[in-house]
Structure formats: C-alpha cells, structure tokens
Nucleic acid binder design. Structure first.
Lengths: 336, 336
DNA sequence: CCTATCGATGTAAACGATTACATTTTTTGG
DNA sequence: CCAAAAAATGTAATCGTTTACATCGATAGG
C-alpha cells in the first residue's frame, strides 16, 4: 500500500511537504506541488483517512444508529440525513438492528474513533440513559426517540397533534365510533399517536372506548388482523378506523375489501406517515403527512452545527409539525 | 477523552496489558483482567476504533457507493448488504449521490483507510475503469453496474431474461402490439430490459416497432407522460404496456385511469422490480420480481469472503434470476 | 536447591498521517 | 551586493492502539 512516505521519497521532499499539499495547507511552491501531485498520481496515492483523523481527531463522519432498515420510513430518514451530511462533506456510518439494550450499547461504543457525532433513533428503548452512561466524546442527537432525560438534543415529530388533527377531522365528518389500531407495544410514536386520538375524542365529548382499540405492531398483517377482529364484533361496529401508521391502514383496507365492506362508504380509513404508497391506493389513503426526510435532515444539521462550534451549541428539543392529507379513504360515512 | 493510557495508569498496569484485555488476546490473569475492566467501566473507556485499525489495517467496515438513496430499490439493497454485514460484525459506510465521474472518484478515494472493501453500484457510469485506476488496496464488488472490464467481481440480476419472460407472457396472452417504456438513458438495467423486450418480440416473429418505444427515466411522472403520449397516437394503439420498472408502470396506470382506459380490459400493464407497492395497486400490478435485498446480501458476502481470504478468492460474475409475478394488471385483452 | 520452562506483564517500535518549530532558501529594499 | 524578512521546506513529536520481544517470577523436574 502506498503511503505518504513513498510519495515523499519519489518526489524528493519530506513527508511534511506532501502532507501540506494534500491537506490543503498552502505554502508549497507551485512547482514542488506539481511534482508531488504527479508522483502521487503515478503511484495512485490517496491519503489514509483513518490515520489522518487519528491526529486531527476529526472523521467527517456521522454515526447513524437505527433500529431497522426495513421499509420506507427508515430509508427516507437516512436519505434526509445523507442529504444534509453530504452538503457539508460528511459521510455516514450506519448501524442498524438493535433489538436490545446491550446491542445498542455496543453499537454506540463501536463508533468511538470512527465518527464525530451520533444520531440515534430508538423509538422503543430509552436510549438517553444509555447515552449518558457512555464515553462522553461525541455529541448526540436523538430522533423520534424515547428520552426521559433532558440535556440531550432531539428532533421529533408532533405525533400527538397529528393524530388529534386527523381524529378531529373524522369527527367533523360525523363519525362517532372511531376505532384505533395501535402501534407496537412500548413504541413511543405509537403511544403518542394513541394519546392524540384520545385527546380528540375527549375534546369532542366522546367516550374513550377500550373496545375500539385494537393491538397492532405497525405491520400490514397486524392491520389486516385488527380489521378482521373489528368486523367480527357483533354490534356497534365503528364507522371509521384510524391506524397508527399507513402500513396498518393498508392492511385494514385489504381486510375490508376482502370482507366486501366498502371504503369509505361503509367504513372510513385513515393512516399516519403518508408514505408514498398512500396516494396510490384505491381509494387513496388519507393520512397524516410526516416530513420524514426533513426529520433526518434536521437532525443531521443540528449535529453538525454542534460539531462546528460546541460552545455555541445549546441542547434543544425540536418538534416538527405534521400536516393532514385528506384523500378518498375517509369520506363522510354513507357518502362513499 | 479517556484513552488506553488512562486506564493503564489507574489500573497500575502497562497499556499492553489493557490492550490485551480489550483486543481479546488472553494471557492476562483473571484478577488483573477484572481490575482493568473495573477501571475501564468507571472511566467509561471504549477503545478508539480508528487508532486500532491503523495498526491492524482492518476496519471491519464495508464501503457502499450508491448513486442515490431515493426509493425502495436502493433502500432494499442497503438492507440486504447490512443484513449480511452485521452477521459478520461489519459496519457500513454509505456514500451516495454521485452524478459524475469525478464525484464517484473522490467518493472512492475518501474511503481509503476507512473501509476494508467496497461495493459499488453504478448503473450509469462505467465504474470499472475507475476502479482499476484507483488505489488498489481494497477488493471491490460491483452491483448491477456497467462493467466493461472483467477481472472485477460483480453481482447483477438477469434483466434481459426477466424482460423476455414477461413479454413472452404477454404475447402468450395474445398481445401483438406491446409498448415499451424505457429506463433512463444509458442506464444499464434499462438497456438490458429493452434488449429482453426485443428478444421476446423477435422470438415470436413480431416486428420491433420504434413507434412502440417510449422514453422514460424510471420516475412515475415519466411513466405517466409516456402513457399519455401513447394514448394520443391516432391508431394502432398498443394493447399492452411493458415498463422498464414498476414506478413507471404505476405512472402509466394513473394516466390510463385518468383517460378512462380500463386496465387490463383495454390495455394490459406490466412492470419490473416487483416493489412492495405493486401488489397493493388496484388492479394489482404484474411485475418481474427482483430479489433486491438478496442482491445486496450476495454482494456483501462475496466481498467479505474476499476479505477473509484474498488468496482463495476468485473474481466472478454472478447473475441472479428473476421470477415472473403475474397479478391482475396484465390479464388477456378484452377479458378485464 | 538449582535451572529450564512457562505464564504474565512491561518496553518500545510500529501504523500513516499532521503540525509546531527549526532550518534553509528566496525575495526585498536600501 | 548584503542583511533582514518572508517563503518554502525539513525535523520530529504526536494521535491511540497493537504486538514482537524482553523481562521477571513462579513452578516443576531432577
């Protein structure tokens, strides 16, 4: 492997001079510079980034810790982070699939010396406790995560409000019995969306009815199952279904279609996230639009600004607004 | 920042001993080991991975170079790579959005010293030339890429055959005028799919008709446009549309719906990739299933096996089979 | 009780860069 | 043409590890 020494030797200069050429420092004569670049090209030399960052203690890399890489939600998050990162010349070190605490822990440790800062998305486990018990080297930004502790910057979306908005809309269309398909147990997004659902019901003077809440885990299948269960109920069938995410809403719509129940004619359906597929469903799915890529972008920017000037940086909790996207799937009952 | 020296000092041992504890080497007395671990825990020490890999010249990291992070295709690829990588304890350094040659070049160079090997996906630019003109340090595997040179390992899917299979199927259903919506200019996947389309036509003794080929760029919008153009043609309207990917097929279906043309009743539609959304369309979209995540997994495995034993490794071109997924959108003409 | 052997630990040289400081070369002004 | 200032280059320490080799006690065999 060709190192800076090889280049220096062949170009008849010291390693310092070669270093100066490649690390952007100037004070190298035009002619010397050309000579060095020529040799470097001939030798196909590229600076060893790892060695460089050892002494500069900068890696120009952001660590991204994510529970899963499956589905559009996470990929959009990554895309957002990447967009922001590459604008500032940063790279991304991605680490996914951390089901338990110790895995998360070791993932964070493994990043030591490889990244300048970390973005953690941990919607199930409370990672903030973890963070504070870790090498305090790099700044951290949490994304849509459970964070009991403050003192850590975070970016999240306003799940509660988004849910309230949607349920309010359904109520406005005359729905009185609105079912909810919940997200995965202990998942913070799902939990907050449930609270928003409750809030809207309360606000309208409607009873929160346990029988109208169905278990789910964000998968399409669980949405399908929930809807089947709902249809099996002998009486007081809900006239609307609000699912904690789009995938489950889609699953539910499949179940309704299979059962010959018309949407939105017999039952209205609404989801959350507004994943791209939503608008292509037929009927097109009403949803709560979440700026997913924007979320990632925001987190990355926060992190990089903290990196750029740690003194100036103040930890802050940012909350991003959602927007209601009303399509066909939640028309007023009986008007399908 | 706490280093190995701090731990050594507080534990009253030399750095070598501490190193031995954390790098898994044994020959450290039980008691000493415990003492060291205790101190490390108290100090929240984590080994500096960068420094370590400087001397071991192993990073346990795979570089992934991808043109784009947008859409399900790429995210699935990454997921596949990650799945394989994490099983072997590898991390992923992701670099995306390389529109031209020099960006690609610098992306590869930036990986020097950060990764042990690289997976390159470059469906537009011929990256193989680039690879051979680069620091020859790490092994490379190309993914669905333009590769004029041999001597580089690659994994790709059998685009041509997949397309032929689908067009054959359409012909079998009695279609004689089959339109093709092409992929982005110079994109290898699109090009190969076009060839497969031609092959199937020729095989059946059908004429390849330039007027039946429409430009596209893999986006939904371009599919929509292509279909509108097609509908505007005064006569000999095709009875089937085969799009070079699902997104365009979906766009085309939107255009047909907007124009009141029934699918598959009036015109059959088929796509390529079998993205998750395909089965949820109505009518459900027939497509050529591509094992996307499998592609990434395969590439990662190849790369890591090369890493594990460079001598044993032989460069090889792997081609993955596609499978036909027939759903509703391509029923026989007139039988909608 | 002595010595060969072995296990546990320490010493110090790498790894490939950057950079303060020293030194040399070039330029500038009188 | 010379001295001082400025510019270009070199020397060597450093970043945080790993690891070959040296060292040191303890153990075992005779």
């Amino acid at each position: 492997m060709v190192t800076i020494k090889d280049v220096a030797r062949q170009a008849n200069v010291s390693v310092a001079t070669v270093s100066r050429v490649f690390s952007g420092a100037n004070a190298v004569r035009e002619e010397t510079q050309r000579r060095i670049r020529d040799v470097a090209e001939k030798l196909r030399y590229a600076p060893h980034t790892g060695a460089r960052s050892l002494i500069t203690s900068k890696t120009e890399t952001l660590g991204v810790i994510i529970p899963d890489l499956y589905g559009e939600f996470f990929s959009e998050i990554i895309r957002g982070i990447d967009t922001a990162a590459r604008q500032t010349g940063f790279h991304l070190l991605v680490s996914s699939s951390h089901s338990d605490r110790s895995e998360l822990d070791s993932a964070i440790r493994a990043m030591r010396g490889r990244v300048d800062g970390i973005i953690i998305m941990s919607p199930d486990l409370d990672a903030s406790l973890l963070v504070s018990s870790l090498p305090a080297d790099h700044p951290v930004v949490m994304l849509n995560s459970v964070t009991r502790r403050s003192g850590i910057s975070s970016v999240r979306i306003d799940n509660r409000r988004g849910a309230t908005d949607m349920v309010r809309h359904l109520i406005g269309h005359g729905h009185r019995r609105i079912a909810f398909i919940a997200g995965a147990k202990r998942n913070i997004d799902g939990e907050q969306r449930r609270r928003g659902y409750h809030a809207a019901l309360n606000e309208a003077g409607l009873h929160v009815n346990e029988a109208h809440e169905f278990a789910g885990d964000f998968t399409e299948d669980s949405g399908y199952e929930a809807a089947r269960e709902l249809l099996a109920r002998p009486r007081s069938r809900p006239t609307a279904i609000f699912a904690a995410n789009d995938s489950m809403a889609i699953g539910a719509m499949s179940a309704l279609r299979d059962a010959g129940v018309s949407v939105p004619g017999d039952i209205a359906v609404a989801g959350f996230d507004d994943i791209p597929i939503a608008r292509h469903m037929s009927p097109a799915l009403s949803s709560v639009h979440v700026p997913i890529a924007g979320l990632g972008e925001r987190a990355a920017r926060r992190l990089m600004s903290a990196l750029a000037d740690p003194s100036k940086h103040v930890t802050r909790q940012e909350v991003l607004r959602t927007t209601l996207v009303i399509r066909e799937s939640c028309g007023p009952p009986g008007h399908g």
